[in-house]
Simulated scan of single mutants.
Amino acid sequence: MTFSNKIENPQTPPPEKQTFNDNEILRAAIATERNFCNSYTTAMLGASHEKLYKLIFEMLKDAAQQHRKLVDLQFQHGWLSLTPAPSEEVKALEKEFRDAEKQLK
């Protein structure tokens, strides 16, 4: 027995011209570099051979540097703003970190 009724949704026509602005392209590049860093970290930690570990580590450093440059570019264009933390908060977090570090020793 063959059914002749098709089940489908109405087709949505694609936009004539879809463009991304510079900020969107930059955000996509930053996300890509972040994903590279995460993947390289996972691969590096699983590398069983020293040369492979060093190679992946260099790739991680390169990706991290590129990520940093892209974030700087985003900041230069005014698409990213930073709010400085109060110095008391920074000092409290630093103390908390130092205390936790002492416990690990």
Rank of each mutant, 00 (worst) to 15 (best):
A47T: 06
L104Y: 10
K61A: 13
V71I: 15
L82M: 04
L26T: 12
L55C: 02
N9S: 15
N35G: 08
K54Y: 02
K95D: 15
L26I: 09
C37H: 03
N9L: 15
F3K: 14
F36C: 13
G46L: 03
E33G: 06
T83L: 09
M44P: 07
T32V: 01
S39V: 11
E58I: 06
W79G: 03
A63G: 10
Q76N: 06
P14L: 12
E58K: 08
K17Y: 07
N21V: 00
L55M: 12
R34D: 07
R27Q: 12
E8C: 14
E50T: 13
N21S: 02
E50N: 06
F36L: 12
T32N: 04
N23H: 15
H67S: 01
Q65P: 02
K105A: 13
E96R: 01
T83W: 00
K61L: 11
T12V: 15
E96Y: 12
Y53I: 00
A28H: 01
Y53M: 09
K95E: 14
Y40A: 06
L82T: 04
Q18S: 06
K69T: 08
A85C: 06
E24M: 03
I7A: 03
P84Q: 13
R68E: 15
D99L: 06
A47L: 04
S87M: 10
L82I: 09
T42Q: 00
G78C: 08
E24V: 02
E33Q: 15
E101T: 13
Q18W: 08
H67G: 06
P84C: 03
C37N: 07
N38F: 00
L45S: 07
L93S: 08
C37V: 13
E50L: 10
L70I: 05
A31S: 12
T12C: 08
K95M: 10
R68I: 01
A63P: 01
S4A: 05
E89V: 10
M44A: 11
K69A: 15
A31R: 12
T32L: 09
P10G: 07
K61C: 13
M1H: 01
Y53E: 14
N23W: 12
K95R: 15
T12Y: 09
L93F: 07
A47S: 15
L104A: 09
D62H: 01
E33R: 15
P13I: 04
E94L: 15
A29Y: 02
E16A: 10
S39E: 11
E24R: 00
P10R: 08
N23Y: 11
L70T: 04
A64Y: 05
N5K: 14
E101C: 14
H49K: 11
L80H: 02
T19D: 02
A47N: 03
M1R: 04
F3Q: 13
L52C: 05
H49W: 01
N23C: 05
N23E: 14
N21L: 00
N21A: 03
L26W: 04
L52A: 13
N38R: 09
A63D: 12
